[in-house]
Nucleic acid binder design. Structure first.
Lengths: 209, 209
DNA sequence: CACACTATTGATCAAGTGATCAATAAGAAT
DNA sequence: ATTCTTATTGATCACTTGATCAATAGTGTG
């Protein structure tokens, strides 16, 4: 008896409608993955005809790409804000690792994994992926450089360390996505690993908090 | 002028034809990714009508899953054989890292990444992925345990270390896939990281070779 | 040689995708 | 109140996907 009847969408300003559609795409991506961001799924979610979604976007590849960018950059902003509240590089790095590996962002991890895969057939998305990876790298590199400057971290290539850290984080998260059975604690051992990379004593990151 | 004319496939034994189709699927997956393993692409590749591919497989999900398993388990066997030629755990671990991160297996990495993504909508594939991850983990855990037994590695949870290592490796490879521009050397820093995880001195893994 | 078995195929279906466009109607402007 | 602008839509197309099945044609057997 509950029919998803849709009379006709109220007329709204292009800016507002466009924002609504982008938001619907964001929700679909977080709930069902980037691959589920389709002309019709986004239309249904924003309670609008499929043609209207197409009307407000150059094409679906672009909507998928921008949806990815929106989701990831929001996460970056969130983490950056969190790091800003911490006193020093050691605390920042420790919290960075713990936060990104705490398992509460699996929806974003799914988006990442699907973006890697879909990016091979969607150039706009591939560009977005590279852009957001660079953005993340910049954040992490910043923390590493602070540590190197203060003498707490021992490294001569903060950029490489940042890439390495991101790769490790992404991999562990992607893995946990599949291994959901006994995922357990990603991120307990990683402290040791990172301490090794940066010439820190055992526990330097864990006890920092 | 060059028409891909196909008269009619020679009649072969079911076993042989089935193997041919599986092989065609393997090639398609390695060359264009798992997502390209489609009824028609595999049929074309094995020079056979699409219906025949369907005839020899319960469904495409199953073919994709078995193709994934074939590719990954072949890689595992290959690496296991390589490791068997080395004298001790330290050499084995070093070579393991270097081999998996040398960038010569990007085709397999693509298959992994797409498997993670497609596995969310293909249960058979998801099961295959978990199975192959377990197989990899077993191999790595074996090496770690050897090192722990001989006192070279310092750890009380070889299983967790193995998972951690695999996550790091997968992440770095997946990242390099996108970042192909300046991928450079994945795997130089990882030695330090792993040394940190296992309580080894700096360079213990690198100089082992 | 004739026959039975079965590997192989062409044709066809339903489902889902992105995309286009003329037609409609809501809301603003006069 | 009437006109005009344009946000919104239904209908429809082309394409790709997995899947089914009756019909065809090799191949070995009796």
């Amino acid at each position: 008896m509950s029919r998803p009847e849709r009379k006709k969408a109220a007329r709204k300003s292009p800016a507002e409608r466009s924002a609504e559609i982008a938001d619907a795409a964001r929700h679909v991506a977080l709930e069902q993955g980037l691959a589920a961001v389709t002309l019709r799924s986004v239309a249904t979610r924003s309670d609008v005809a499929p043609a209207l979604v197409a009307h407000y976007q150059p094409n679906m590849d672009a909507l998928i790409a921008s949806t990815f960018a929106t989701i990831v950059s929001a996460e970056i902003d969130e983490v950056v804000a969190l790091l800003a509240t911490l006193p020093g590089p050691r605390e920042r790095l420790g919290v960075l690792l713990d936060t990104l590996l705490d398992g509460t962002r699996d929806d974003v991890t799914v988006v990442w994994v699907e973006a890697w895969a879909l990016g091979r057939r969607n150039d706009a998305l591939a560009a977005s992926v590279r852009g957001q990876m660079d953005a993340w790298q910049e954040v992490v590199q910043g923390v590493v450089e602070q540590g190197a400057a203060s003498g707490e971290f021992e490294t001569d290539d903060a950029a490489a360390v940042a890439w390495q850290l991101l790769g490790m984080i992404d991999g562990l998260n992607a893995q946990a996505l599949v291994r959901w059975g006994d995922a357990g604690d990603r991120g307990s051992l990683i402290h040791r690993a990172v301490e090794g990379m940066l010439g820190l004593g055992r526990g330097a990151l864990s006890t920092a908090r």
